[in-house]
Structures are given as structure tokens and as C-alpha cells.
Nucleic acid binder design. Sequence first.
DNA 1: GCATTTGCTGAATTGTTATTTATTAATTTG
DNA 2: CAAATTAATAAATAACAATTCAGCAAATGC
Lengths: 221, 221
Amino acid sequence: MGESGNSRWQRKKEARPSEILDAALMLFVDKGYRATKMEDIAQAAGVTKGTPYLYFQNKEEIFKAVVRETIVARMQAMSAQLAQLHDASGSQLLGMALENWWIHIGATRSAGLCKLMAAEATNFPELALFYYEEVIRPARQLLGHIVQRGMDSGEFRPANIEHVIDMLTAPMLMTMILSHSFGQVPGCCESLTQDPLAFLKTALQLTLQGLQNPPAPDTQS
Amino acid sequence: MGESGNSRWQRKKEARPSEILDAALMLFVDKGYRATKMEDIAQAAGVTKGTPYLYFQNKEEIFKAVVRETIVARMQAMSAQLAQLHDASGSQLLGMALENWWIHIGATRSAGLCKLMAAEATNFPELALFYYEEVIRPARQLLGHIVQRGMDSGEFRPANIEHVIDMLTAPMLMTMILSHSFGQVPGCCESLTQDPLAFLKTALQLTLQGLQNPPAPDTQS
DNA sequence: GCATTTGCTGAATTGTTATTTATTAATTTG
DNA sequence: CAAATTAATAAATAACAATTCAGCAAATGC
């Protein structure tokens, strides 16, 4: 098997797609969708310009494949895992859901894809729709089910479900977005939470505290 | 004075800069920084490609001017206004600060600039630094002072100031970002808060409730 | 080894866009 | 009203980047 520098290239039909997707993930997270050049992806994957087009229709399909292989796959695993726990309380389930999201997505490269989509949704509406259907809707649905069941069982007091989902979601989203935007720029770092997980836990506690049944009359109907 | 269609163009040395900035604001909010073409700005301002270069060095300077004329100017006004109120409680001040931000920035086109900066910070680090110094740092400092004073006076219990700022900020940021990303894409709208101000008020109540002095031991030191 | 297949290359094509600058024409001035 | 001034134009420049495709060379089979 030829070493690097020996023959001009290697034939690797099987390995190419995942090599290309790995390279693409890295670059998309680093530079965003538009700013990532096909040639850069090719080079990072150890091939030349034309090769990615032998395995994927175009840049857009590469992006979709990356999202499927990372975020969608992990979401499904998390979802299945939570579905097992029929005896856990709503608070416990929400805590697990958010902590899992943080561990498997928020704290990984994939979080960069979440930021990327918020960043470029308007310029690439087809990608936005894809991401909405595959990621945002299922994720919100999962949280919504947990909250709804908690309200039905009397664990949580009645409240606007969408607002509750937004509240559970906002700290996570902000953390993912900031750490992949200003957090990457030298000189802007001061404003970044040094310990994201601690912040997320605090935020969750606060929201759950306000959601618990007895207290004050404030959340919308 | 020639009407439109009469002579090929009008000379308006005084009015040009603001016409150009108005057009630029609209387009930046709509398409983002990179995707906004100088020629589009020119056309929207009723001039041709070359003209903006007579009044501004380049695209970057146009963007900075837009941010100064909108967000920075309004922040200074809000800041000055809050500085007057020496008798208000911390909760009141925070409520006013966030509601003002929503009214004067969050609910206006300017919110699109906030989203834009989060979106493109990594590709345009110089702009990111400018925005950080002119907007993010002052805004966080203002909130930080209010929270600090509230903690000193005993109104708020001790907590990690940066975390509190993040918590106050996250719902606002998320609302501004989502409404200018997925919120603009037909088909993604379902997930958007229909009544952002109601959501923001709910979120603030919840955070203040957790910050008030007596209760449970949860926020970090 | 030789012929065939096919993974891969890289030059060419097509399209985009920030910025410069020579030129044009509205306005001003004397 | 004819110079002089200068706001504005628009063509040219200089990149850059997605995608295509004719041809090359690594595998494979015989």
C-alpha cells in the first residue's frame, strides 16, 4: 500500500464519503456554510476538487448528510433512551434531556451546526426547512410531551407550553451560539461563560422552580 | 429641480450618506453582511455602484456606521435614562432596561444586526471586535452594575454575576435571533413565539423570582 | 503482462462581487 | 452664458468559487 508521496493518490471508494463528511463538518463549524469552499473540503479530505462530486450531488447535500450523521442520529438515540423511562418525574426527564443534549451535542462540534443554521437560515431557506423538520421540530416536540405530561399529572402548573419550551431552550441555544461566534474571536472572550454546564444547570433549576405546582400566578395561559 | 425620469440623476451631497445607510441597514438585516452586495446597497439608495465609495471607505465602514447610528445611539440614550433613576429598585431597573431594549432594539430592524453579528462574527473578526466593544460590553456592564447594586443592598441574594447577566440576556437574544433566522423562512414559523414581549416578561419574572433574597440555595457563588 | 474498468484529477466553464477609475453631466461661479 | 468644479456613473479590474468533464492512472481480472 503506497505511502504518502509515493503514488499520486489512493483509491478508497468505501472510505471516501465519511472522510469527506468529517472534513466538511470541521470546516462548516469553523467557517459557516457559505464561507466553506468545496475545494477546502476536498483538500481537508485528502482529495481534489472534483472528487466530492462523485459521492454527493452538491454542497447542499453534503451539508444535509453531515447534519444527519451527527445531530439527527444523536437526537434519535437520546429520544429512544428517554422513552424507556416511564417512571421518572417530569423534572428528572427535563434534566436528563437537557444534560444529554449538552453532552452529546452542545459540548461537541455539532453545536457549531446549530449556530450555523441560525446564522444562514435566511440565505439558504431549503437548508433551514430541512433543519427545522429534522431537528427543531422533533426536539421541541420531545420537550413539549414531557412538559404536557407533567402538567396533566399535576407535577407542573398550567402554563403556555411553547413559552416553557422556549425558556428551557434559551440558555442552551445562547451558550451554543455564543461559544461558536464571539467565543471564537480573540478579544471577545471575556463575555463568555467560563463554565457552561454550571450555567445551564442553574438556568434549569430556576425554570423548574417556577414551573412547580404550588406558587405564584404569573406564567401565561 | 428635475423630477425622477427627467434627468439621469440628482446631486444630493448632504442626503446621500443617510440614504446609503438606510438602504444598507435594510439589506444587512435582510441578507446578512457577506451576502449583501455593495451594488444592492447602491441600487436601494437610488445610486450606482461607485457612489457609496465616495462617502464611505468600504463595506466594513458602512456596516460600522449603521451600527453606530442605530444600536449604539439608542443604547446610549437608554443608559442615560436609566442613570437618572436613583430611587428605583434593582428589579424595577432590570425590568425597565430589558423592556427598553426590546422596544428600541429587539422589536425593531436593529435586532437583525444583533443576529447578524452572532452569525458572522467568526468570518469578520474585526467587525466582531467592534461590536463587542461598542455594544456587548457596555450592555453587560450596565446590567452588571444594576445586579451588583441590588446584591450590595440586600435586595438580591449573592450569585455569580455573569450567570445572572446570561440568564437575563438569553431569552432576549434567542428571540432576536430566531425571529431573524428561522422566523423569516416560510414553513419554519410554527416554532416561533407569537407574542415575544409576553414571553420575555414571563422569563424576567422567573429570573427575578429566583434572584430575590429569602429563598432556596441554588445559584452559584 | 495486457486489457478493462473505474476512482480520481485538474483545467475549463460559468457566475459572482468588491473596488478602481476614466468619463459624463449637473451645478456653481464669475 | 461659458468655464470650473465635482457628484455620479458605468465599464473595467481582479479576485474568488461552484460545478463539469475529458483524460489519466490505480485496481482488477484474465
